[in-house]
Simulated assay, not measured.
Amino acid sequence: MIEQPDRARSRSDTVVFLVCLLLASGMLFVPPARTARLASAIRNSVLVPLVWMQETAVEGKTSRSRLVLIQAQRDSIALLAQGLPALRDENDQLRRLLGLGQRVPLEFVPAEVLHQALPTDGLTLLLSAGHADGVALFHPVVAPEGLLGVISSVDRQTSVATTWAHPEFRASAYTDGAGVFGIVAPSAPARGTEPLLELRGVPYRDTIPAGTLVLTSGLGGVYPKGIPIGRVVSVIRELTGWERTYLVLPAANPAHAAHALILLGPAERSLEGAFPDEER
């Protein structure tokens, strides 16, 4: 008589386990569009307190940094602390982002990079701006150095950006100077190396020197013309008589971005000259 409740609980645990297993197996066959909507629903319900806590932590960190800067003006010891590499890099990025905002001839929304959208996902970024700020799908995301990615999911207060490292990323591009056109896509990285890009579809008759700047072409209606993507490293593949594929070193690293600008458009406006050479 005493053991019956234990057996009942054991059966209940088994049923719960089997239900979870079936749900997990079913999610493997759900289309990506539905999983994106499901993830958005979870962020707007179950994960709302966690996102709020993250935003509060970021705001607290920014406030503490400002306090250190104020104290640094009055205290020589705090002035030395201001020279720490991490703080110096963050301040430098903020100054360059402010300068970029003054040069960009488009409407934009500044945003903080809160963290990766998923704990195991290094290909997307969660940004502190959403529908309430005018952000919509396919708005480009840029850093002072160049292109970071594009908005792929939007909530009221936050949005998710797919970076250039995502396997589905594509952008029409051209080279500075010669004006050679091609398509930029992620390159399959070797183990233990930094992710790189490829400039594909370059006509075989055209040769691009190493170090040539690659920029968005403005074709396709998503990315305005003139956003730096990266610089050519070398040829990695060629189809004799047809085309060459070039390896490209990205201009902006999403892993190092703490702040960004979300461009609201229109995409027809050119950004040539908004990214000076000293920023890249």
Rank of each mutant, 00 (worst) to 15 (best):
T163G: 13
G83H: 10
T240G: 08
Q54G: 06
A78Y: 14
C20T: 05
R231I: 07
F17P: 01
R64H: 10
R7L: 10
W164G: 07
A129M: 03
G122D: 10
R96W: 05
I77Y: 13
L28Q: 14
V248N: 01
V113E: 00
S76V: 06
V184G: 10
F138E: 10
S65Q: 15
S217K: 03
P254D: 11
A210P: 04
F29A: 07
Y174L: 15
G182E: 04
G201P: 00
L100M: 12
Q4W: 01
L50G: 00
R237F: 11
Q82N: 13
G60N: 10
A251F: 13
G211W: 05
L28A: 14
R231Y: 07
E243V: 05
P250K: 06
A132H: 09
A267I: 05
G134P: 01
M53P: 00
L97S: 07
T207L: 13
P140I: 02
F181H: 12
L126T: 02
I42P: 00
L199H: 07
A81N: 14
T14H: 11
H166G: 12
P266C: 09
A171K: 04
G211R: 03
W164T: 15
R205F: 06
L87T: 09
I2Y: 07
G146P: 05
A143R: 00
G192V: 12
R103S: 09
L219Q: 11
L100Y: 05
E198F: 12
E107C: 07
D89R: 14
P32T: 08
H166Q: 14
V104M: 03
T14N: 12
P195N: 09
T240D: 10
P276W: 07
E145C: 01
Y174Q: 15
S40E: 05
D155F: 01
E3L: 06
T62K: 14
A72S: 12
P5G: 02
G230A: 11
G149W: 02
T207V: 11
S25Y: 13
R66Q: 10
R64G: 12
S40A: 07
A258Y: 07
V135A: 00
Y223D: 01
A57W: 02
P119E: 09
V48M: 08
A165L: 14
A36F: 11
A190Y: 10
A81F: 14
L23A: 08
A111S: 08
V150R: 08
R95E: 09
G221K: 05
V222H: 03
L50M: 08
A111I: 00
A78P: 10
P203M: 00
H259R: 12
P186T: 09
R9N: 12
H256D: 13
A274S: 15
L67R: 11
A136V: 11
H139K: 06
M1Y: 03
T163I: 14
S63Q: 13
K61C: 01
R231D: 08
V142I: 08
F169E: 08
E198H: 13
I70R: 08
L80E: 15
L123Y: 05
L98G: 01
K61W: 00
T124H: 08
T56K: 06
A86L: 15
H166V: 09
